[in-house]
Structures are given as structure tokens and as C-alpha cells.
Simulated scan of single mutants.
Amino acid sequence: MKRLGTALHVVQNKLIVQSEEIVGRGAGIPRGSSWVVDQKRTRVGKVFDIFGPVNRPYIIVLPNKGMDAAAHIGKKLYIDEAPGRDRKWKK
């Protein structure tokens, strides 16, 4: 699990997350459609779009159906980096 950032707002049922500061080449911006999870590894949704400054971008997360996006405001969110997990969901 890699820390994504802190959830700030809900706009049109999408969660706006301010990412952690990106320093150096090793740290990167998450890929689109990456799974976003909370601290308990419960899937919150997927990365929908990325915008804003390069060193600390904002990330739009499209929540899963039935997920209350407002419940995650102010909480830390993470990118699930489990190997091979993205491949089986791309179909």
C-alpha cells in the first residue's frame, strides 16, 4: 500500500483527494484506474482523473457503487499495489 493523500471534498459523487508531495523520480503519480483503498484495505474506488500542480496534484476518485464518498472526507487514502490485481479487473 502506498499513501495517496487526504480526501478533501465530494463533488458530483466523486471524491477529491490532495496527494502527498511527490519528491524525486522514484515517487510517481498513480496510474488511471488504480484501486484506491482505505486504511483497512477496503476498496473505496478507482482513480478517475488527475489535475493540478505537478508536485502535489489533486486526484479524482470514482467511488464504488453503494460507497458513501462523504464518509472518507478527512481520512488518508492509499493506492493498492497488490501485484497482478489490476490485470484481472481490466476485462
Rank of each mutant, 00 (worst) to 15 (best):
G45T: 14
A27C: 03
P63R: 08
K46R: 15
E81K: 08
I60W: 07
P30T: 09
Y58W: 08
F51C: 05
E21T: 14
R56W: 13
K46H: 15
K75F: 00
I16W: 10
R25H: 10
R56K: 05
R31G: 07
G66L: 05
D86Q: 02
R31Y: 11
K2W: 03
I60N: 01
R41I: 02
T6R: 12
V47T: 00
A7R: 01
G84P: 01
E20W: 11
L77V: 12
W89V: 10
I73Y: 00
V11I: 14
G28A: 05
F51E: 01
N64M: 12
G32N: 12
T6E: 11
V61G: 00
L77K: 13
V10G: 02
K65N: 09
F48H: 15
V10L: 12
S34A: 08
K40N: 11
S33V: 00
G24S: 08
D86Y: 01
L4A: 06
A7H: 03
D49S: 12
W89T: 02
A69W: 04
P63Y: 10
G84H: 04
I60C: 05
D80E: 05
K91L: 04
P83V: 07
K88Q: 13
S34M: 00
G26R: 14
I16L: 14
I79L: 08
K91W: 13
G52H: 06
K88G: 01
G74H: 15
H72S: 06
L15Y: 09
R43W: 11
Y78K: 05
A71R: 15
V44F: 10
A27M: 13
I50L: 06
K75V: 00
K90D: 02
K65W: 14
V47P: 00
V36T: 06
E81Q: 08
K91D: 09
G52P: 02
K91G: 07
G5L: 11
N13I: 10
Q18T: 01
G32M: 15
K46Y: 13
Q39A: 03
G5A: 14
S33C: 11
V61D: 03
K88H: 09
I79Q: 11
A7W: 09
P63Q: 13
E81S: 03
W35I: 04
R41M: 07
I59Q: 02
R25F: 05
S33F: 13
Q12F: 12
V37C: 00
R56D: 00
P53I: 15
S19F: 03
I73W: 01
I73V: 01
R41K: 13
D49G: 06
G84V: 09
N55R: 15
R25T: 10
I79A: 07
L4V: 01
I73L: 06
Y58S: 08
K65S: 10
I16Y: 14
E21W: 08
W35S: 03
V36K: 01
D68V: 06
L15E: 08
K76Y: 13
L77R: 13
K2D: 02
W35R: 14
G74P: 09
M1R: 14
A71I: 04
K14L: 07
A69N: 03
R43D: 03
N55D: 14
P57F: 10
Y58G: 02
